[in-house]
């Protein structure tokens, strides 16, 4: 059964169609990658799905519910979480605190309990911390737990974002270039991590430029060019598609 389905999604900026009529679906445990040249509209598509932009047309259906243009914090409640291409970590907080922030929804509780430092509030904080430490171990950042997030390397920050997203125990995870700026070893680690997350039943939607990685881990690939879906299918089919090759090598759209 399709957990996340994108139906005819489109948006224009000042007359320019950044994304036009894109549809596809993601099932639990499946890794779907969105690829395409720079400026193809991949991140814009992500921003529409995750509620950052309001789509001009089309629908986003999550687990049978229409969640189009829903605020990100409400999507988080429904089990959707994402990471960012241009990293959005809480710089001045520690790595551990960043991860604990992902437990915000599970922590719940009232401001009053927090401000009075009631036992209930402390208990919640403790549970979240234990969970966060486990997650940091899972992404290999346990030794950096007490460090200020701003001091981490790019690759580590990418993993921190994934840890924070996992803290929400999402059913759908959107990863925007998780391996960008990582060396070969780090890329492979992230590779394994993503496969592992998918294996636990999470539906994963991935944007990635590293083609080797995309071909290796994707179950399904959607190719965008100039905001339109030009091809989709399993890795082998997509890599042989002449339109895809043309979009990447630029033979057809040399002017662009």
């Amino acid at each position: 059964m399709t957990l996340l389905s994108i139906e005819g999604l489109g948006i224009s900026f000042g007359g320019l169609k950044a994304v036009n009529n894109v549809s596809f679906g993601v099932k639990p445990g499946e890794i779907v990658s969105v690829i395409g040249p720079n400026g193809a509209g991949k991140t814009t598509l992500f921003n529409m799905i995750s509620g950052v932009y309001q789509p001009g047309s089309g629908k986003v259906i999550l687990n049978g519910e229409d969640v189009t243009a829903m605020s990100p914090h409400l999507l988080a409640r429904r089990g959707m979480c994402r990471t960012f291409q241009n990293l959005q970590v809480f710089q001045s907080m520690t790595v551990l605190e960043n991860t604990i922030a992902g437990y915000h929804l599970q922590e719940g509780g009232s401001v009053l309990a927090d401000i009075l430092n009631l036992p209930a509030s402390r208990r919640r904080a403790k549970t979240a911390e234990a969970g966060a430490r486990t997650l940091l171990k899972r992404v290999g950042l346990e030794r950096a737990a007490e460090r200020e997030a701003g001091s981490l390397s790019y690759g580590s920050l990418k993993r921190l974002e994934i840890a924070r997203a996992l803290a929400l125990q999402p059913r759908v995870l959107l990863l925007d270039e998780p391996a960008a700026g990582c060396n070969a070893v780090e890329t492979e680690e992230i590779d394994h991590l993503i496969a592992e997350i998918a294996a636990s039943g999470v539906a994963i939607l991935l944007i990635e430029h590293d083609m080797k990685m995309v071909m290796r881990i994707s179950n399904h690939i959607v190719v965008l060019d100039h905001g339109e879906k030009i091809a989709e299918g399993d890795p082998t089919t997509v890599s042989r598609n002449p339109d895809v090759i043309a979009a990447y090598l630029g033979t057809e759209n040399a002017a662009g």
Partner: peptide
């Protein structure tokens, strides 16, 4: 507290704060 952490989080990155459900 959790609320204070969420506050500092939204100060750090509002969009990321929303993404984690704040």
């Amino acid at each position: 507290s959790p609320t204070g952490r969420a506050l500092r989080a939204l100060h750090g990155s509002e969009i990321a704060a929303r993404t984690v459900g704040i």
